[in-house]
Amino acid sequence: MGSEAMKINLKVWRQPNSKAEGKFETYQLNEVSPDMSFLEMFDVLNEQLITDGGEPVAFDHDCREGICGMCSMFINGRPHGPKQGITTCQLHMRSFKDGDTIVVEPWRAQSFPVIKDLSVDRSAFDRIIASGGFVSVNTGNAVDANSILIPKDTADEAFAAATCIGCGACVAACKNSSAMLFVSAKVSQLSLLPQGKAERENRVIAMVDQMDKEGFGSCTNTGACSAECPKEIDLSNIARMNREYVRAKLVSK
């Protein structure tokens, strides 16, 4: 704690809007504390830019504790930076060394157009969920919660899949910009639970169709998504989705 301040060079992608050409700009920060979070370092940079009459770097963030899924920086060639199992906002500067140059870019995918600088449009994910990522139960239709018994292991597995924060790091990391991990996490959660079983065929088909329509790539099973996923969503979810999909295609009417 409280160790020496570091010098950090930043190479940051600047792009005024979705239509403009972007380019890298270089900035230097001289007083970076190792206990700062990565985003706090950007706050410091922006403060510096604003007081010097420049334009601050636009980036998405909200909760700053790794749960909202809003932050999204591609740092030194990896989504959410060099550490495993965390988001950009949970990355701390102690993961870097004095004098390091850090390259920061937005997520890049055809389906995630850049809005400005490091902000991208991930509404494709919402449209995928809208296509089928739910249980069709209106408010008031529920039975007593304990009348549905769910084995603990099943509940835990569904929960693990449900922890996806929709950040899009999987898409960003994947060489194919595939959204399979994201989609499979939702498909898995709902197909594991008895509540979701009723609609399992329609759901998987609709969600995969929407995913394809959005222009995401297909899966080569490189595993990059899961390796970079801040919630460590497992690849077995993709296998489950493949299974569900083929099954649905073969059995549904």
Binding site: K11, W13, F24, F74, E105, A109, N176, G215, F216
Partner: peptide, 8 residues
């Protein structure tokens, strides 16, 4: 699917 720009 990566889009017009690829990563630096």
């Amino acid at each position: 699917a990566r889009g017009a720009k690829s990563y630096g």
